[in-house]
Design a binder for these strands. Sequence first.
DNA 1: GGAAAATGACTGACGACATCGACCAGATCC
DNA 2: GGATCTGGTCGATGTCGTCAGTCATTTTCC
Lengths: 145, 145
Amino acid sequence: MTDDIDQILISALMEDSRRSLKALANLSGLSSPSVAERLRRLEERGVLRAYTVEVDPKCFGYQLQAIVRIRPLPGQLQEVERQIQAIAEFTECDKVTGEDCFIARLHVRSMEQLDTLLDKLNVLAETNTAIVKKTPVKRRLPPMA
Amino acid sequence: MTDDIDQILISALMEDSRRSLKALANLSGLSSPSVAERLRRLEERGVLRAYTVEVDPKCFGYQLQAIVRIRPLPGQLQEVERQIQAIAEFTECDKVTGEDCFIARLHVRSMEQLDTLLDKLNVLAETNTAIVKKTPVKRRLPPMA
DNA sequence: GGAAAATGACTGACGACATCGACCAGATCC
DNA sequence: GGATCTGGTCGATGTCGTCAGTCATTTTCC
């Protein structure tokens, strides 16, 4: 389904998604039309979901990053989910099993802003906030083998 | 520092990092050499950290995704951090304030594998695992304005 | 078992693109 | 007020992506 060559292409694009077809062709030993065709198929099958860019939030003044665990008050689950989606400073959110219904990542410019945003949620849910001090593992792929 | 045109370029690349310079030029109203120069500077300043690709882990058999909170036993903090980095199935990890020292994302193919991996950590740390049921907010950028 | 069809690759030609140098306009600074 | 720096355009040149046509290999089906 995804063979060795696909994996070469995928990891090459993980490193630098702007690589030319020709460069990918050299890496994989194929011709560039073949590479184009393989990428097309990987996209079609949903293996490659998006070509994107990693931006440093600090450059936009987001000095603080927090992981927030969110436990909606009775009957507020739907509304909490909508709120999280509506607050643009939440940059990721997972709905999980266990006592905490949601675990979300929040980027803010200041403690004051953190407080303001969490107050909005605290009428609907209990929250538990952990400030990110360091990121020992940056986003990476699990082993493909 | 980063003006409107930079933001147009950045969000265009967020959507599709393989867009040609020419396409970016049309979007921004600049010429393609100017766009190239702006991208060069954004990379240099660390605003654009990487051009990358989003892959669907399910396509590699990773059916389960978990958020693991990790509290090292006394004296094991360093070793826990090393272990997390060494286990490739941990695809993200933040070191945070509060009782839980680390919050990490784990991709596994089965419950059995989840158990095996967590057992490795449980000699060094207490863990608390939440299985991801749904992702209401997919990774996105905080507002740039 | 063998013919037909489908798959996945290559090549070569052509149009689109990136890149480079030369040049220009406006802000900044002695 | 002229020198300089910044950030832009334009046009030429070489590289790249894409398309059509071809071919070998594998799969399917009678």
